[in-house]
């Protein structure tokens, strides 16, 4: 298997699917130049009719995606930074998430909205949010958050074959990370988690960008004799609660790691669901590691204080592991 970068994997998925399915069109800001790299080469290969560089007009873009999808196209709508989802949010919340439902199932809305989310690069509060919880709350949107290049390819291809609005939220600044990417027709079903590390003492669920620090935390905890079952949900809608609960059934302990603000985060939702469905499995309180309810600051020192890292994950695991009597 070849090693590729995250953006190459996504680019490969889009290229293969556009080759396979002539109804796919791309709209988005600077998609012809592709500063992110994920739409590079598409306009040369598929032409300016199918690949449309748009003005910076998220209101019309996010809604055009809905109109085009409802009338026979399959649409990739690239919103660039996740915070620009907010400027295009009306059509996402009021049309994309609801149109099929309001119309009693008369339309399918095959849309892939793409954006980079999260902090860590000193671009400050308006370019660093992780807004997947807000999208989760809409109900009619699927959300894919790949943590590795291989997953990114498989999930992007599956998303491009799904007949619903799907958000592919890529961890910002991590497009250059290398990983093994299967060649050709490789898809990962939406809603299927992966256990990235097997373990019996504590379950850690890490979302998107948080998988990387969680892997580091697993190594540190292993050195202390604590084995972690690390679950990467890969899609937060649909969420693979069966996989999470199966892991918690073995470990009896859960820490959820999320780069969103803690209030009403995906971590909160996972914690609530596990408490509701698996209270009898738990030997210790559930821990959440997330951004406190502050905006993401600019200065690297401040940003580091806010965004969860391996050390915070280790601390959270130790807190519940010790209280439950797991040997250190």
């Amino acid at each position: 298997m070849a090693k590729k970068r995250m953006v190459q994997a996504i680019n490969e998925a889009i290229t293969e699917e556009m080759e396979r399915d002539g109804s796919i069109i791309v709209i988005g800001e600077d998609v012809h130049i592709s500063p992110v790299g994920d739409t590079r080469g598409l306009i040369e290969r598929f032409g300016a009719s199918r690949v449309r560089n748009t003005p910076i007009s998220e209101s019309v873009m996010s809604g055009m995606a809905v109109g085009a999808a409802a009338t026979g196209s399959r649409v990739i709508c690239h919103l660039f930074y996740g915070n620009f989802i907010y400027t295009g949010f009306d059509a996402i919340a009021n049309q994309a998430a609801k149109l099929r439902y309001m119309l009693g199932g008369q339309v399918k809305l095959p849309i892939l909205y793409m954006a980079m989310i999260g902090g860590g690069r000193s671009v400050a509060a308006q370019h660093s949010d992780s807004m997947h919880p807000m999208l989760m709350n809409l109900g009619g949107i699927k959300i894919v958050m790949p943590a590795s290049p291989g997953d990114a390819k498989g999930l992007a291809k599956a998303a491009l074959r799904d007949d619903n609005p799907v958000f592919l939220l890529q961890a910002a600044g991590r497009g250059g990370e290398l990983g093994e990417v299967p060649e050709g027709d490789y898809t990962i079903p939406l809603g299927k988690a992966e256990e990235k590390r097997a373990g019996d003492d504590v379950t850690v669920v890490a979302i998107g960008s948080m998988v990387k620090p969680a892997l580091k935390a697993c190594d540190e905890l292993a050195a202390r004799g604590i084995s972690v079952s690390l679950i990467d949900p890969r899609t937060v809608v649909p969420m693979d609660y069966d996989a999470i609960l199966a892991s918690v059934a073995r470990t009896g302990r859960l820490v959820v790691v999320d780069e969103a603000r803690k209030s009403c985060s995906a971590a909160s939702e996972i914690a609530a669901t596990v408490a509701e469905r698996g209270f009898h499995l738990l030997k210790a309180p559930i821990g959440r590691v997330a951004v406190e309810d502050v905006a993401i600051p600019y200065s690297p020192v401040l940003e580091k204080a806010v965004i969860p890292d391996a050390a915070r994950i280790v601390d959270a695991v130790l807190k519940i592991a010790v209280s439950g009597g797991v040997p250190r």
């Binding site: 996010s62 055009m64 109109g67 999808a69 409802a70 009338t71």
Partner: peptide
């Protein structure tokens, strides 16, 4: 408005 623009694009 945006929906119709999208239908026109399609």
């Amino acid at each position: 408005i945006a929906l119709a623009a999208g239908a026109a694009l399609s």
